[in-house]
């Protein structure tokens, strides 16, 4: 604001600005101020108005407020320290809003372009699953229905136990943790139609509930139990919520899903990933 102002003051204390404007002649800095009060999609659309709007729409003033307050930490962690200086705030926004893989491609993080907020997904490959490499219990299936292009299918097991851990610098906010599950195994039928095969293998989920647990390093605990149902569609099963108040240090999360009553087997379940969403977003 007021850039170059001192140069506009002459000896008689006169303040001048260039010719009387139509809106198109408003200085870029003023247009940037207006744009900074809009949503990201609105800013990008209004860049099409003319060249001045376009230039204003790229300025750091506009995008600083659209980034998480700890974006310096996230950029360093995800892209390296050199990017912090080299990229404009708009470029950082663009890069953060495309899913970024980390932890040997088992985890993904992205910034929601429309609503703001950082989300994380953890593939089943990044979880600790009892018996995962024993093909009598679990099989690994390629699937376009997973953002990681792979899901784990449980044929049957007595001891179901899935655990995960994540250490991440979440921005300040409230988050919800979900397991993304699907009863029955989906596959492509004739003509690419989605069909559920092995529906008869879905069993054991109505006998005892599955227990979900969440624990965060800053003291949030949640335990919930739920009978799995709703075959044939992907469901986000809510594990619990946690709150981040300090985004300059990593929050450590431990979460699990278990059904360890060995009096019966259970099976016919697909596991995709664990999702962590800012909890103001409605899910399911």
């Amino acid at each position: 604001m007021g850039a170059g102002f001192s140069g506009l003051v002459n000896n008689n204390s006169v303040i001048e600005y260039p010719s009387k404007p139509g809106l198109g002649d408003l200085p870029e800095s003023c247009i940037a101020l207006v744009l900074s009060r809009l949503d990201p999609s609105e800013i990008c659309k209004l860049a099409c108005v003319n060249n001045t709007f376009r230039e204003a729409s790229l300025s750091d003033v506009v995008w600083e407020s659209k980034l998480p307050e700890n974006h310096h930490i996230l950029v360093k962690k995800l892209f390296g320290v050199a990017c912090l200086k080299a990229l404009s705030k708009k470029e950082i926004f663009d890069r953060l809003s495309h899913p970024i893989r980390f932890a040997a491609d088992t985890k993904e993080v992205w910034l929601d372009k429309s609503r703001g907020g950082v989300s994380v997904a953890i593939s089943w490959k990044g979880l600790k699953i009892t018996g995962i490499d024993d093909r009598r219990y679990w099989t690994h299936i390629s699937s376009h229905e997973s953002r990681f292009q792979t899901i784990a299918y449980l044929q049957q097991i007595w001891w179901l136990e899935i655990e995960g851990k994540l250490e991440f610098e979440f921005p300040v906010g409230t988050y919800s943790v979900f397991f993304r599950l699907h009863l029955g195994r989906a596959s492509k039928g004739l003509g690419g139609r989605r069909i559920i095969c092995d529906a008869e293998k879905i069993h054991g989920w109505d006998i005892k509930p599955v227990k979900f647990q969440l624990e965060s390093s800053n003291g949030h605990h949640a335990i919930s139990q739920c009978f799995l149902d709703g075959q044939g569609k992907w469901l986000h099963h809510h594990v619990g919520d946690f709150v981040v108040e300090n985004s300059s240090i990593p929050t450590t999360l431990k979460f699990s899903m278990a059904q360890i009553d060995c009096t019966h087997t259970k099976g016919g379940l697909c596991l995709d990933s664990v999702f962590i969403f800012p909890s103001r977003q409605s899910r399911n």
Partner: peptide, 16 residues
Amino acid sequence: KYLVLATDTLQVTCLC
């Protein structure tokens, strides 16, 4: 429009 210009020039941040 004239207000935003004036407040930008005069550097009245809050009003701007």
